[in-house]
Design a protein around this nucleic acid. Structure first.
Lengths: 169, 169
DNA sequence: AAAAATTATGTGACTTGTCACGTAAATATT
DNA sequence: AATATTTACGTGACAAGTCACATAATTTTT
């Protein structure tokens, strides 16, 4: 009895230690924590959602863009962007217009007010990136990005490549 | 006019390239892709949600656990686990009992059926981890984990450490 | 011992993200 | 030219995750 009471917390700690080297879990936790940090910073700087910030940033840097283009830039689903646009238009941050060359596309463009909000929010968000690059040297980033490249290739492969071991007789 | 038509796609590509070195975005995309892969594998192996799988795994490895303990192991919110339990009990994978030593806690325990499902699902999921460790050497994992450690520390800090530059007169 | 602070759990409300489907427009095939 | 495919976008439905709050039980202060 006493034995069980004393060993259970140890089991928890052991399990935690074990999971500390689980890349899937660690990467997920880190990304989620990063998202929370971004959400908090955006909240403190104004009233932008994460998607709204990403859209503003893309539009500010790369002129008028379509929904699909932004989805491609952000490696995300077009639904996310599609749903963010109406509110941004209502807030007066962006305008939409049907593309002349392809009437399926809608071109999203920053308004002056949208640019103001971007500039303002950018203070906080680029400070964040600056702080990160004080923590990670160019070489660190390089190493990190390469590892992420490989990890991404792995998780985007249809199925983990099977070892031929089991196929062998 | 023709000019604009020709340069816009370049701008998109340029923006994509630029964002390729944005750790926040890259890490998030990698983690999300990993989640999708896990979801697909779980779907192909049975009918477990991601949270259900994590709970099964923790319970199988570290005996009966409380909600808070599993949340700590998984670096996640207790709400996620709290909500998953009733369905797992209904499916017959786990049982809950009020802890004798602390009547606020509920001890979650695997049933025999739960262990069967774990063993079955484990085939696919540990194959995934095995495939990953074929892609990443121990040293790679080591480097990766250390970078994630630093990144996590950064995003969990209350605010990005300010450079003293601005504070200096 | 009584009061105050902390902790474990459950739950509502919300954000982020994915998938699948329908519609309309553009492109490719015949 | 007519038909078939593909593509862009919007939208419903759902999964995953976070936060804030309520309640009950435990621990700490007084």
């Amino acid at each position: 009895m006493t034995n069980q009471i004393r060993t259970r917390p140890d089991k928890v700690k052991a399990r935690q230690l074990e999971q500390n080297r689980n890349l899937f879990g660690r990467l997920s936790a880190a990304a989620l924590a990063s998202r929370v940090q971004a959400q908090r910073m955006l909240k403190s700087a104004g009233e932008l959602s994460i998607t709204e910030w990403r859209v503003l940033w893309d539009l500010a840097e790369a002129g008028p863009l379509t929904v699909t283009e932004m989805a491609a830039i952000q490696h995300t689903d077009h639904a996310l962007i599609s749903r963010a646009i109406p509110m941004m238009v209502r807030k007066g941050y962006a305008t939409t217009s049907v593309s002349q060359t392809d009437r399926r596309q809608s071109l999203i463009e920053l308004t002056d007010q949208g640019r103001d909000v971007f500039n303002q929010t950018s203070v906080v968000m680029s400070a964040r990136r600056a702080a990160l690059s004080r923590t990670f040297s160019e070489d660190d980033v390089d190493t990190f990005i390469k590892l992420i490249d490989r990890f991404e290739a792995f998780v985007e492969a249809p199925l983990p490549e099977n070892p031929t071991a089991e196929a062998a007789p």
